[in-house]
């Protein structure tokens, strides 16, 4: 039987000192999920310029890409997407019953974090190219 956990309210920010690795994984996965769904709506809104014609689409996208803040936000988007993907793979394995013991779960969470950091840092030059 599956069992749900009462984790209390995440809004009780003072609890962060009590968080275990599993709780941080849960908080980060929720946070990155919220960012990604927010971005999906923003992305579709920006791409809607295609409905106004060729010039509107190209100038909107290229105009945004000329802004340094957009490039930095894209690096942030990459970070949340990579973490959500890697931690999501970890969760899929847990759901399949692989790596259920606490030690493996903690190690795979830390591995997700470290790999996210490496991929993001290595990608910074590509994302800031031409600024």
């Amino acid at each position: 039987m599956s069992q749900s956990h009462n984790r209390g309210l995440v809004e009780d920010f003072g609890r962060w000192r009590e968080f275990s690795a599993g709780m941080w994984a849960w908080v980060f996965h929720k946070f990155t999920g919220w960012v990604l769904i927010g971005y999906l709506f923003t992305h579709i809104a920006v791409l809607s310029s295609a409905l106004s014609g060729r010039a509107a689409y190209t100038s909107t996208l290229q105009g945004l890409e000329q802004l340094a803040v957009v490039r930095v936000l894209e690096v942030g988007l990459l970070a949340v997407a990579v973490f959500h993907i890697l931690n999501g793979i970890r969760l899929l394995f847990v759901d399949l019953g692989v790596g259920l013991d606490l030690d493996t779960q903690e190690k795979s969470f830390y591995a997700s974090l470290i790999l996210t950091g490496i991929i993001v840092v290595a990608s910074v030059p590509v994302f800031l190219e031409g600024l």
Binding site: A50, R54, T58, L61, E65, V126, E129
Partner: peptide, 18 residues
């Protein structure tokens, strides 16, 4: 991500390319 940021580059995206 790989296609539109690493293979193609986001600042070079055009209507024609899409």
């Amino acid at each position: 991500f790989l296609l539109l940021h690493f293979y193609h580059h986001a600042p070079e995206i055009t209507f024609g390319g899409s």
